[in-house]
């Protein structure tokens, strides 16, 4: 931590992020969550509450709109609706549920983490922690990291279900496609779920680290907290997009046949 702050201008942001990540794992390994169970549970609830409505609305709308748009095109080219449902489910599982949920979490949860930690930096609470022989990573980052990782996985699964159901409703109510035709899952494999799962785990790791780093590096007074929050959202969203690209490539070459 001391190292991390004192040499912050000499090391690149990515290296610092990896340093923070490894320290977080170190403290989790040393039982940070057991000691700070209450904080961890509070964070878990707060992050969930903060995002659940947001995720419902965005992923629900996205599911409806994408099914609607695809059906319009299909209608024009080949009036053959049976492929739409399975193709929609597949892209949702592999791509859209984790990535859109990840982006939403990067804004909602990422900004919250950065604002909380950042305001503790400018009001010297982080200094005071170090003064009391308490590691900020142990006290502040580890519980938020674990809570965010778990919530990213849970919210992604939830968001995926919401968007699939919303899409199914549109297909059925607007286009009259029967549910058993739309919700055909026989061409979805474990690899597809694995690809989606890997993505949301990766986002769940990257988002809290990017956000906590922005928070810990807050400079100046309360206007510094604003800058840090913006930086957290930008960096976390950027991480999501880059990881999506990398993991999609990985899945394409190694998971799917």
């Amino acid at each position: 931590m001391g190292l991390l702050l004192s040499r912050q201008h000499q090391r690149s942001a990515l290296l610092r992020a990896f340093a923070l990540l490894s320290q977080t794992f170190l403290w989790l390994g040393r039982g940070s969550l057991r000691r700070r169970r209450q904080q961890f549970i509070e964070q878990l609830f707060e992050m969930g509450n903060r995002s659940v409505l947001f995720i419902t609305v965005t992923l629900g709308t996205l599911g409806m709109i994408s099914v609607f748009q695809v059906l319009i095109q299909v209608d024009r080219i080949l009036p053959e609706y049976s492929v739409v449902g399975p193709a929609f489910l597949l892209t949702m599982v592999r791509e859209f549920a984790p990535t859109i949920a990840g982006l939403m979490i990067a804004t909602r949860v990422g900004s919250g983490i950065a604002a909380e930690i950042g305001s503790m930096v400018v009001t010297e609470q982080v200094d005071a922690l170090r003064m009391c022989n308490a590691e900020p990573v142990d006290y502040l980052v580890a519980p938020r990291f674990a809570a965010c990782l778990i919530q990213t996985v849970l919210l992604t699964m939830y968001g995926g279900v919401v968007s699939v159901v919303a899409g199914g409703l549109v297909a059925n109510l607007v286009w009259g496609i029967p549910y058993e035709v739309f919700f055909r899952v026989d061409n979805i494999t474990y690899s597809d779920f694995l690809a989606g799962f890997l993505k949301c785990v990766a986002y769940g790791i990257a988002i809290p680290i990017a956000a906590a780093q922005a928070g810990l590096e807050t400079e100046g007074g309360s206007e510094g907290v604003g800058t840090a929050t913006t930086r957290a959202v930008v960096n976390a969203s950027f991480c999501v997009v880059v990881l999506d690209f990398i993991l999609s490539g990985f899945a394409f070459f190694f998971l799917f046949d």
Binding site: M1, G2, L3, Q39, T123, E124, Q125, D127, A128, L129, R130, M131, C132, N133
Partner: peptide, 25 residues
């Protein structure tokens, strides 16, 4: 001194911060 090395310094050398930083939680 390293961050660890400062632990002993911080035991005998206290600080009252400008923002009277108590932990809100």
């Amino acid at each position: 001194l390293t961050e660890k090395g400062f632990y002993t310094v911080r035991m005998k050398c206290a600080m009252v911060f400008q923002h009277s930083t108590l932990f809100d939680s």
